[in-house]
Design a protein around this nucleic acid. Structure first.
Length: 483
RNA sequence: GGUCGGGUGGCCGAGUGGCUAGGCAGAGGUCUGCAAAACCUUUUACAGCGGUUCGAAUCCGCUCCUGACCUCCA
């Protein structure tokens, strides 16, 4: 299996540090507002990665943090804490904000059928670990304190290590291009960033520390928590591409400065979700909320899309490509998703043949694994699955053969890839009452049709269509589905 | 300005030297009281110019367009 490593900018063979164990750390959300769809894409991408690694038999410890403290507005190191600011706005305690949006995040993740991480640590729950790490960095000579605030000394660090290793930029260029930002008069260097920030009296969230009362800088939490749960060196660290240049660059620097080891073997970055070609982001205000998407309550949407249709939409693009979010594209995915699921249902009804199978299962299986082994290429996997889908439909029609042995293998294989690896699931969970009511309505309509009372049968069909129920007439019977 | 990507058929989106990606839409067909749904078959492509090669969407050069990061964001 190969994984594209941002660190080296090539696909590398995946060899865990301590196989079969795999340490996977993903930067989670900052829970001061609703997660938007772009955030979800990253977590769905890493859900796929987590699922596939597990499917291959790796024992994965998946750590995804919750940032619930210390995340500043802008890069002004004397800025407001995002939680405190939002809390004042909503007249709530900061931890109420954290609780509200953490629960909302989990709800959305559940709807998208993502597996929960093995550990979901919070920044506020690891203040002492962060303080300890900062102390060690100061002790090692890569940070300094100014009036209760601790800064990381980037230029000092860069004398011994390569600060810009992840983005391959020149430090000199960065120095030239850095704007005049807050806290500059305290900092020794323009690129220095805060590890610990002195709390002003009005700050709601603060903790005691060797440097006085304050709160941690954004980047230190991930360094502290990843090393605590995965060790000083672990296999995979992931996040959105937007985090690479600043957050992840600083994480590497902090860990190196603290432990003198490169913390991560494979850095993986997911690309952005775009709307009309522009990145979906909180600050631009062009973000979709998942619930708007599910309900269709948004000016850009014709109707609501189910979580699985959206998940399918995201899986149809590779995680390192930008993905453009349009109504047409979603509609296409919705239909494709239904088609795939329909053929899986049909597979259960395929009758095994005595003759040789017309489907080469070995080759099919190999192609599926080859797709995923090539840096988790889910679009190619889906293309393979649609080949199987076409075969299933033919076999169901009696136009192709599959023997009992192969049929069982095919079922197992498809279930593994569709449900376990891609994390898709059947959504048509109807209540018993609905099921019985629909049986009744369909029976009445069938009777009307038998009497050639087409006015009645057609009006039933049209009325159901209007409330979103599609009747599917076939030779033998009538079934229904949500349209 | 610096760094790194991308430009693929009506839309989305894979593919990195020769072999139909796939999905949706369109067209034709099967089925049907009509229709829808479903299924089957199927047309349209690699931004432009030049080069390397027996052969390039794929490698190289130039041009144009475009995105991300460099400032909080997955």
């Amino acid at each position: 299996m190969v994984i594209y490593n941002t660190l080296t900018r090539v696909k590398e063979n995946f060899e865990p540090i301590n196989t079969p164990f795999v340490g996977l750390y993903v930067c989670g959300p900052t829970v001061y507002s609703d997660v938007h769809l772009g955030n979800c894409r990253t977590f769905i991408s890493f859900d796929l990665i987590y699922r596939y690694l597990s499917h291959l038999g790796f024992k994965v410890r998946y750590v995804r943090n919750i940032t619930d403290a210390g995340h500043l507005e802008g890069d002004r190191d004397e800025g407001d804490d995002k939680f405190a600011k939002k809390a004042r706005l909503e007249q709530l305690e900061p931890m109420e904000i954290v609780q509200k949006y953490t629960l909302g995040f989990h709800d959305v993740m559940r709807l998208f059928n993502t597996l929960p991480p093995s550990i979901e640590p919070t920044a506020t729950g690891h203040i002492s670990e962060q303080i300890e790490m900062i102390r060690q960095i100061i002790k090692n000579g890569y940070a300094y304190e100014v009036d209760g605030t601790v800064y990381f000394d980037v230029e000092k660090y860069n004398q011994e290590y390569n600060y810009t290793i992840l983005t391959n930029r020149q430090l000199a260029d960065l120095l030239e291009n850095t704007r005049a930002l807050g806290g500059q008069n305290e900092k020794h260097g323009r690129l220095d960033f805060a590890l610990w920030i002195k709390a002003k009296p009005e700050h709601l969230m603060h903790w005691p520390s060797p440097w006085g009362t304050g709160f941690p800088g954004w980047h230190i939490e991930c360094s502290a928590m990843s090393s605590k749960y995965l060790g000083e060196q672990f296999d995979i660290h992931g996040g959105g591409m937007d985090l690479a240049a600043t957050h992840h660059t600083n994480e590497i620097a902090q860990s190196q400065a603290c432990n003198h080891t490169s913390p991560v073997k494979y850095w993986m970055h997911t690309n952005m979700l775009t709307v009309n070609g522009t990145r979906m982001s909180k600050s631009k205000g062009n973000g979709f909320l998942p619930l708007e998407l599910f309900s269709g309550n948004h000016p850009l949407l014709n109707h609501g899309y189910s979580p699985m249709a959206v998940r399918f939409f995201m899986l149809q693009a590779h995680y390192r490509s930008t993905l453009d979010f349009t109504n047409d594209a979603l509609q296409a995915s919705e239909k494709g998703y239904r088609r795939l699921m329909a053929s899986l249902l049909l597979l259960e009804k395929v009758k095994p043949s005595d003759r040789n199978s017309d489907f080469n299962l070995d080759e099919f299986s190999q192609r599926c694994y080859a797709a995923m082994n090539d840096d988790f290429n889910s679009p190619v996997l889906l293309a393979e699955l649609f080949e199987a889908s076409r075969f299933i439909n033919s076999a169901y029609d009696g136009k192709a053969d599959i023997n009992l042995h192969d049929l069982e293998i095919l079922k197992k294989l498809l279930h593994s890839f569709v449900f376990d690896v891609l994390g898709l699931k059947e959504e048509n969970s109807q209540t018993e009452d609905t099921e019985k009511l629909m049986e009744l309505i369909i029976r009445l309509r069938t009777e009307a049709k038998a009497d050639k009372n087409y006015a009645t049968s057609d009006s039933i069909r049209i009325a159901l269509k209007e409330i979103g129920i599609q009747l599917n007439d076939s030779k033998e019977n009538t079934s229904w589905s949500k349209s």
